[in-house]
Design a protein around this nucleic acid. Structure first.
Lengths: 129, 129
DNA sequence: CTTGAACCTCTAGTGACTAGAGCTTGTAGA
DNA sequence: TCTACAAGCTCTAGTCACTAGAGGTTCAAG
């Protein structure tokens, strides 16, 4: 099967300009072209794009995704390296959660102080100082 | 007291180019200038910059911070509006935490599958598909 | 053969900075 | 007073991951 960019876009939920962008930076393989210069995609392109979109949704950067894909192609110790990338990403996410929970507590304090002061002027902004 | 940009930078932990950038986009008041065109800051600048840095650390965008500062200066119902901005930011943060926890679970699954397969080739990348 | 949807390339904009070039000013010591 | 050199200045361009728009071409249906 051969797909147009519009069909690929529908199948992957990835926007058309984004697909072209991914090709431009080399994270997605170059598409074949029709006689009229329009892009043509194979199932391999579709699989790769799914992997990219899913990884992006998991918060990986395009640079990390590129590495992951390259490592997958190689043979020497690639499993360990991929594993490290995923593991360190997991650590990042956990740190972010911790950080956000701190922010949540701080903002909650601000909002609560705000409710207590019955004046029309809330002290949110002063509290931020 | 009058401060140079370097002194202000040290006091606030905000990098020099960032201070100039904040002035450029109008979130920090314009600095006075010495005869030799170098920036001079007052305590008011310092207070404002502290507010900006703290708010950024809490995850507010510069646009939100701008609004917050403008509302603080105004009088009509500004308390309510500031409050709304802070409240909606709090909601955003909670959504982000939920989202990240989902990612954490998914990545954890991937890493665990990886540990179980005893082959040298880890399946992280395939798992991402 | 015509119409209109889908495609093409290229440039520029987003947010929040950061880096670098190339120049000027301020300050401390001789 | 002179000399270093640290610190400051402006301006442009780059980062990431797209998105928007202009202006042109190709494809498919009627």
């Amino acid at each position: 099967m051969i797909y147009s960019i519009g069909e690929l876009s529908k199948m992957t939920q990835c926007k058309i300009p984004t697909i072209r962008y991914y090709e431009g930076i080399g994270v997605l393989q170059k598409a074949m072209r029709s006689t009229g210069n329009q892009r043509q995609y194979s199932q391999a392109h579709c699989d790769r794009l799914h992997l990219i979109c899913h990884s992006r949704a998991l918060g990986f950067s395009l640079e990390e995704i590129k590495q992951l894909i390259e490592l997958q192609g190689g043979q020497f110790n690639s499993g360990q390296k991929s594993h490290d990338i995923v593991q360190s990403h997991l650590t990042d996410i956990r740190n972010k959660i911790t950080q956000l929970k701190k922010l949540e507590r701080e903002l909650l304090t601000i909002v609560e102080q705000c409710h207590q002061s019955q004046t029309s002027d809330c002290l949110c902004v002063s509290a931020l100082k």
